[in-house]
Design a protein around this nucleic acid. Structure first.
Length: 429
RNA sequence: GUGGGUGUAGCUCAGGGGGAGAGCAUCGGUUUGUGGUUCCGAGGGUCGCGGGUUCAAAUCCCGUCAUCCACCCCA
């Protein structure tokens, strides 16, 4: 029995942050607070899709699709023997667009603001911040090219990071132009590479021949060329205006950013605005969040021309960046720990426990006849805020003794009809 | 896919041819009605797995697997 390589279990009290379920729980809550404020609604799609969704969506010559995708076919070939190839999704956007079209979400509403959250799969050698099963939270706005959606989305990304108390990050933006200018750029890169063929190793040149833009994205930084072709040269007026407007609005909204003209993104569907948020505290896998416009993807999937923008963030990478404040806050605290004296008083104690739970408090007691002191020790070990002492005296007179562990203050409360109000009152203080 | 580091108790690690260890954690006692401290004690290990060398391997050699880090790629 063994866990699959590059995958991980997530469970309580794990010493490893990215395996700690309490941390996962609190990071999810914090991220959803931001998404709520920006009025995004959740879309949940299956982790398995037909491989064509990603082959045409992301591009089949990207590394993600050609090298890293988990593909499989059904073993049984009875009634389902259609030669269908499935895959574990390597990212979220293509699935969202598929679902958006399949359920005509664009017809029900002009603008759809959707978020997704879940596991993604890529077959890669794992290292810090990179795992074969990893989790992404992504936000997509489908249905408009208004520049304010750029601002809203980048604003959301930054709000999420702030809410997680991650402050050490850098936003990079670029505009790579529309399909036409990307084509021109590709042509220029090809010519450029051809002129410098003697300086480029054959393997990299193969990339140029296949997809020059990919070469610009992934290989060109290995060489010390002085005048690398830039997307800037080929932007049409609209893209240029859009980029200027974006920069102006970012400044107006006091969002710090850096223009990175080499920023292309390793996925085919992007156009115009692209952005990335990086952290310097992550080692070599330093991108924590990235996204951009994909105005042609819906059309490519057979739908009407629909302008879209979105981003995805890696949850594991975010967890690696959490500070001690957030980690501490995620630790579970019990409200009440009920302590009983003898088997005689146990059933009375249990009814108190049951009542506390019905009121809504996280409550616990020990059922294994530990000594009084052991129970008390358990209470403090379990981070209990209060203890409830229930013994013979309390049973006879129908009350309970409550002690606040941090201060040592004790209170006596009747276990009657007013118990609920009194105890809620007590906790409020 | 390429290169390097590391695999010994739940965790962090020491040991380096001949008795399986420490600290923390867990459990029990100190203490059968008041905790966090102290002190005492207990449980827990195929020394990653397989093979080789040796009278003898956790230790040396080879292989393999896992994990971490870097390249690459990306969130």
């Amino acid at each position: 029995m063994k866990l699959i390589k590059g995958f991980r279990d997530i469970f309580p009290d794990s010493e490893i942050d990215i395996s700690n379920s309490e941390l996962w729980n609190s990071i999810n809550i914090l991220i959803k607070q931001s998404l709520d404020k920006f009025n995004f609604s959740e879309i949940i799609t299956p982790p398995i899709e037909y491989d064509s969704t990603f082959k045409s969506g992301i591009g089949d010559d990207t590394d993600i699709v050609s090298k890293e995708m988990y593909e499989f076919i059904l073993k049984k070939d009875d009634e389902f023997s259609k030669n269908e190839t499935f895959c574990l999704r390597p990212e979220g956007t293509a699935s969202v667009v598929r679902s958006y079209l399949e359920h005509s979400l664009g017809k029900k509403k002009k603008i759809n603001k959707l978020f997704y959250c879940g596991p993604m799969f890529r077959y890669e050698r794992s290292q810090r911040g990179r795992y074969r099963q990893f989790h992404q939270i992504g936000a997509e706005i489908l249905g408009s090219k208004n520049i304010y959606y750029e601002i809203e989305l980048i604003g959301l990304a930054i709000d999420i990071l702030r809410n997680l108390q991650i402050i050490d990050f850098k936003l990079e933006v670029n505009n790579i132009g529309d399909e036409d200018s990307l084509k021109k750029l590709g042509k220029k890169v090809f010519e450029f590479a051809n002129d410098n063929k003697n300086k480029i190793n054959p393997e990299d040149f193969k990339i140029v021949e296949k997809n020059p833009l990919r070469f610009l994205d992934k290989a060109i930084h290995k060489y010390e060329f002085s005048d690398i072709p830039s997307s800037k040269e080929f932007l049409n007026n609209e893209s240029n205006e859009r980029f200027d407007e974006l920069k102006e609005l970012l400044n107006k909204n006091s969002i710090e950013f850096k223009v990175n003209e080499q920023l292309i993104r390793g996925i085919d569907y992007y156009n115009d605005t692209v952005f990335e948020i990086k952290s310097s505290n992550l080692g070599s896998q330093d991108t924590i969040l990235a996204g951009g416009r994909y105005d042609n993807l819906v059309e490519k999937f057979g739908g009407p021309k629909t302008d879209c923008i979105g981003f995805a963030a890696g949850i594991e990478r975010l967890i690696l960046l959490l500070n001690n404040n957030v980690k501490k806050a995620s630790k579970i605290k019990i409200d009440f720990y009920v302590i009983y004296q003898s088997d005689n008083t146990k059933s009375y104690a249990y009814s108190v426990l049951d009542k506390l739970r019905k009121i809504g408090f996280r409550s616990e007691m020990d059922h294994d006849r530990k000594s009084f002191i052991k129970q008390l020790k358990s209470a403090s070990k379990n981070n209990s805020l209060y203890t409830v002492v229930v013994g013979e005296e309390e049973k006879i007179n129908n009350f309970v003794k409550i002690k606040e562990l941090s201060s040592g203050d004790e209170f006596t409360i009747k276990f009657d009809n007013l118990f609920q109000e009194k105890i809620i009152d007590l906790v409020k203080k």
